[in-house]
């Protein structure tokens, strides 16, 4: 997870089935960008907390608050959760992206943070950028024009 105030652009490259979650507090120009890989940590206490949606978002909110962020002002945008390979087998290998999206949406709902914009699902990777100056989120993909969330 990365965090910056007033200036700078945060970037996370090539989100596949992972999800990029940006939070922005416009009042103090505080931007944070989290890259999660899996829906929930369960009892994986010894691992990188940012790998999981539940523990990652908790830690992100804690850090933002430490930097003076106020939760009700947060603008949340998410991207990613693609299905990179269309696997024919019944196992969970192909649909982790879908589970990630559902988990992030549920956690944000529980935290009462509205997801303003999202660019999720489908079958391609996305690079996500957030500019601390104005909170603009850009999504870069291969072979498609850049979009602004």
């Amino acid at each position: 997870m990365k965090i910056t105030r007033r200036e700078g652009v945060l970037i996370t490259y090539a989100l596949g089935s992972c999800i990029g979650i940006s939070l922005y507090d416009p009042a103090i120009k505080l931007a944070a960008l989290l890259h999660i890989m899996l829906p929930e940590a369960g009892n994986m206490s010894d691992m990188n907390v940012f790998k999981f949606a539940d523990t990652g978002i908790q830690e992100m909110l804690r850090k933002m608050a430490a930097f003076g962020g106020v939760k009700r002002r947060y603008q949340c945008k998410i991207a990613g959760g693609a299905k990179m390979f269309d696997m024919k087998s019944a196992g969970g290998i192909g649909n982790i992206g879908e589970r990630n999206i559902r988990s992030v949406e549920a956690i944000m709902r529980a935290e009462q943070i509205r997801i303003l914009k999202k660019d999720v699902g489908l079958n391609y990777a996305r690079t996500m950028l957030i500019d601390a100056e104005d909170g603009a989120v850009k999504i870069r993909t291969a072979g498609r024009s850049e979009i602004i969330l």
Binding site: A14, G16, S17, C18, F85, I93, Y124, A125
Partner: peptide, 24 residues
């Protein structure tokens, strides 16, 4: 072995598949 699946995409995105598979 499963039926092969093919994808053209960003390297980082493709590598998230095995990484997420073993992430737990």
């Amino acid at each position: 072995l499963s039926v092969p699946a093919f994808s053209v995409n960003m390297l980082g995105g493709i590598m998230t598949v095995p990484m997420a598979e073993f992430g737990y």
